[in-house]
């Protein structure tokens, strides 16, 4: 219902602009395609960010602070694997994924589109050198973003609450822990066991061995403060 109303208004808007050349009184309902170009910057000192998958949707949310993480979010936050999140077709209208992760000090651009107006853009990505830290955007409202307008969001770090923040080499999957582990292999990523508080919260930060957590595989270089990403959304269609 609301979708239909928006399509109509958009079409009328187009008609009004062209009214001086158009004597026709028939109103054609056309689909309104939208396209967003999104530039994502990794602002951290030493946290790789897992490949972001941008989602367009009208309902639903990827997470709620204070509530338990979904299994799909647990998988993402502990391993960087977004496949379970992408497989939820119950609310995702359209998605687009980066070809790889975003190294600290770099940015990537993703274009996501849909055949009709959409209400929200969301994404989640893991901070790779952590137990279950993630960042993202949750239900960014796109309805007021006009063509060629841009808006920039700063994202913060969340804790999925599904894995204790031990920072040990055998529980952190990222490259910093590979280097620290005795055999040079990656620590375990996803583990279905939930041995933490089991609610999503803001992340308390990386402690690191330099800061006195003797079992930590992480160093000063993996510490972070908010914001961890800058995300600029431009409506291009």
């Amino acid at each position: 219902m609301s979708k239909f109303a928006k399509v109509t208004i958009a079409t009328l808007g187009g008609l009004a602009l062209a009214a001086c050349n158009d004597d026709s009184d028939t109103v054609t309902i056309i689909e309104t395609p939208v396209e967003y170009e999104v530039v994502l910057k990794n602002l951290t000192n030493g946290q790789p960010i897992s490949p972001p998958s941008l989602l367009l949707h009208n309902t639903g949310a990827l997470f709620t602070v204070g509530e338990s993480a979904s299994e799909a979010l647990e998988l993402l936050a502990e391993s960087g694997d977004a496949s379970e999140i992408l497989s939820d077709t119950s609310f995702i209208l359209s998605s687009a994924s980066a070809s790889g992760g975003i190294t600290y000090g770099t940015s990537t651009s993703i274009t996501v589109s849909y055949t009709d107006n959409v209400k929200y853009l969301s994404f989640v990505s893991m901070l790779g050198n952590s137990n279950d830290a993630f960042t993202g955007l949750n239900q960014v409202d796109l309805t007021d973003l006009a063509l060629n307008d841009s808006v920039t969001y700063q994202t913060v770090a969340y804790d999925a609450g599904t894995e204790a923040n031990t920072e040990t080499a055998d529980t952190v999957p990222g490259p910093a822990s590979n280097a620290a582990s005795s055999d040079g292999t990656a620590g375990e990523a996803f583990n279905a066991e939930r041995d933490d508080i089991d609610i999503v919260t803001m992340h308390p930060g990386i402690v690191s061995s330099d800061d006195g957590l003797t079992t930590s595989a992480l160093t000063y270089q993996q510490k972070f403060d908010n914001p961890v990403m800058s995300v600029t959304i431009t409506r291009t269609r």
Binding site: L43, T44, N45, G46, D210, K223, D225, P227
Partner: peptide, 18 residues
């Protein structure tokens, strides 16, 4: 000395003081 390395040689959010 906390570190001798620059992890990220671009302008970024400061990781904080140890």
């Amino acid at each position: 000395g906390v570190t001798t390395e620059i992890s990220n040689a671009t302008v970024h959010i400061h990781p904080g003081v140890v």
